Simulated scan of single mutants.
Amino acid sequence: MIDKLRTLVLRNGGFSAALAMFLVFFISYQMLHPRGFSTAVFIQNANESVAIGFVAIAQTIPVLLGGLDLSVGAVMTLANTIASHLVTGTPLQMVLGMIATLLIGSAFGLMNGLIVVYGRIQPIIATLATGAIAIGLALLIRPSPGGEIDPDLNWALTNAVFDMAETFGFADNGNAAWLQPIANIPVPLIIILVVGVGVWLPFKRTVTGRTIYAIGSSEGAAYMSGLPVARAKIAAFTMAGFFASCGGLYLAIQTSSGNADISQAGAYTLNSIAAVVLGGTSLLGGIGGAIGSLIGAGILRVISFYFRILSIDPLLQPLIEGLVLLGAVSLGALRTFRVKNMMELFR
């Protein structure tokens, strides 16, 4: 049993290191927090981690191809502004508004994939351009911060399971006994796990998902093996758009508004890259996964939590975050320093 566990850890060294780092950081943060580990603190932490978690998953899939998607933050911002207009009214109208938001984000990702595949443009260049388009559309849709999100939806999805059940009438008339084991679990945590992991794991096991890994390892070999390379690339960027729009939709629900914030879009994009690398995904492609990126996003968020409880000077916070980002991206380049033969990079 111990040997199997050791083998599993060694095979997933990047993920194991990220998980250990996250646990150390998070447990230390909870010990230092004045209120300790409480439901309120846990819910707050989960709320602040959902958007970056979704954007990190969005970035992971193009990175597995061996590319970067510089539009994920912009697509998230576009979805945020769209949701601030559509997610209101009757329950049916809100559901349709959410679906429309996710479809628009996915369509933007599909456009990225088509440009990369049929336009034969490098992903980093194509998505840099389309990201600017997304920000421009977001500014047209929401020139100034504002909007209206249903308050009951906001309360239900940003608190504990019991609060959601009570809001929707599932905990009335003494029928809350079945909720007790899960009553204090943050709904945001459930959302990111159900949507993020629930969509990623089945997709990863499909032919298209496996082809994405094959392309990242060796696109030439994947093509010669008869794998659907073009379809996998298009699917990868479409999935990136979907997950980025999930982040924007949740951000709109959490803040009850939309904001076409250019600096925020850029920050989320950069942090998504850092989260991907921290989670053990190689920037060279073919190695890693979305679950590791979620852990990487958690590490970045816990670092920002330390700023609050340690009263770090706001002027120093960008410096510290920049050093973390630089260190995270540098970790992804360590493999190149150990390479003696450049052909090894494509194995």
Rank of each mutant, 00 (worst) to 15 (best):
V195C: 08
G147R: 11
I2K: 15
G220L: 15
G53E: 10
N159F: 13
A297R: 04
A328K: 06
G279C: 04
Q317C: 04
T90W: 10
S16L: 03
L10K: 15
Q30K: 05
A252S: 14
M1V: 10
S49W: 03
G147A: 11
L68K: 09
L323V: 12
S16N: 05
I115G: 10
P202K: 12
G53A: 12
S304I: 07
A221Y: 06
Q264I: 13
E344V: 11
A156R: 01
D69L: 08
F37M: 13
V199P: 00
A236I: 04
V117L: 11
A252W: 03
V75F: 05
D163N: 14
L331A: 01
Q44M: 07
A235D: 02
N47D: 13
N45R: 03
G285M: 03
E166W: 14
G53W: 04
G66H: 02
L270K: 01
R347T: 04
L249T: 08
E48F: 13
F203K: 02
E344N: 14
I61N: 03
A51K: 04
E48G: 10
I303P: 00
M224H: 06
K340N: 13
I125K: 09
I253C: 04
L251I: 05
L10E: 15
L140H: 05
V207C: 05
A236P: 02
I262Y: 00
L110Y: 09
I2N: 13
M164S: 04
A83C: 07
N175V: 00
S304G: 05
G258H: 05
F170W: 14
A183F: 02
L345I: 15
V195L: 13
Y118T: 00
